[in-house]
């Protein structure tokens, strides 16, 4: 009896593994193997286009320490992540709450705010290069008509990275909004009714009912946002090529420069591993701080 049960259970396990196997193979070929290889390469002098590699030990990692640009790039990446994620999620949350009503025509608004997500990133980058153009760009025209000073945006080392942050918020918040909207639909409406009857203000309803109840989704959005933000490459490549004066150079772009422009695959691999540590650290930080505060509905 118990033998038959054990066999059935084992068959079930085998089936599960069989179903998981194809994706495991893909993960192994396209993710785990390259990671292992990049660790191996980072310990060598590897030149793109040349099959010979030479052992260096820790040299590529020691180079990181004395590489002025690496620290600047790390700072830029951190700045980008720490501004883009909170701001775009805050914008998404406000949009989601505002659009979570049954008024007529809301679908049009939702589509409108989601639209930037569907624009290919290179096209979006080119569009914003035009919007930010110092001479004839609409953004500067708008600033002038408001009586504000014009900016050089992508040509100014102080404003180029904030300019990319602003565009990223525009690009990402619609996506986050959509996920948050779905979560809002699951918040029981009787909670709001009770709060309204007790005369709780809209701000307090948001802070004490909405945010706690959608916190699992918010947590998910923060993790996804973190992953998105360190992957930023296309905007930098299209809009600024890392300039002016390295002010928009971020880790992924710097890895690309070292690996493909300078053919220095060994150093690029060391940088990639630094990025891996950076991202794991960031996600870990999010998990131990915000992750503990997540409230799951129906959780005991």
């Amino acid at each position: 009896m118990s033998h038959a049960f054990a066999r059935a259970r084992r068959n079930e396990m085998l089936l599960a593994y069989a179903l998981l196997l194809p994706s495991l193979v893909f993960l192994a070929i396209f993710t785990y193997w390259p990671i292992l290889r990049s660790v191996w390469f980072s310990l060598h002098d590897v030149l793109l286009g040349d099959p010979d590699i030479y052992w260096l030990g820790a040299e590529n990692y020691l180079r990181l320490l004395e590489d002025r640009l690496f620290w600047k790039v790390l700072g830029n990446t951190a700045f980008y992540t720490l501004t883009t994620i909170p701001l775009s999620i805050a914008a998404a949350l406000l949009l989601a709450v505002a659009l979570d009503s049954k008024l007529r025509g809301m679908a049009i608004y939702r589509s409108a705010f989601f639209y930037p997500v569907m624009i290919p990133s290179v096209a979006a980058g080119m569009l914003w290069v035009f919007l930010y153009a110092p001479g004839y760009g609409p953004i500067n025209e708008a600033l002038t008509s408001l009586g504000l000073p014009r900016l050089d945006w992508l040509y100014d080392s102080k404003w180029a990275l904030p300019a990319i942050v602003i565009m990223s918020i525009w690009k990402y918040s619609g996506y986050f909004m959509l996920i948050l909207l779905a979560a809002l639909k699951l918040v029981p409406s009787d909670l709001y009714e009770a709060a309204r009857l007790d005369g709780v203000s809209a701000r307090h309803r948001l802070l004490h009912i909405t945010i706690p109840l959608i916190s699992p989704t918010l947590y998910f959005v923060i993790i996804i946002g973190t992953l998105h933000s360190y992957q930023i490459f296309d905007y930098v490549y299209v809009m600024t090529q890392g300039g002016p004066a390295d002010s928009t150079n971020v880790l992924t772009y710097y890895i690309y420069q070292n690996g493909f422009q300078y053919q220095d695959i060994g150093y690029a691999s060391a940088l990639a591993n630094a990025l891996l540590v950076f991202v794991l650290g960031l996600i870990g930080l999010v998990a131990v701080t915000l992750g503990r505060k997540v409230h799951y509905l129906g959780e005991r």
């Binding site: 640009l69 100014d156 080392s157 300039g243 002016p244 004066a245 390295d246 420069q257 300078y262 053919q263």
Partner: peptide, 21 residues
């Protein structure tokens, strides 16, 4: 050798100088 890195390094030095950094 490494002219591509050399070019980027010089451009960065010029840009940072002209930006007053």
């Amino acid at each position: 050798p490494a002219y591509s890195r050399a070019r980027d390094s010089l451009k960065s030095a010029i840009d940072r100088t002209l930006a007053g950094e």
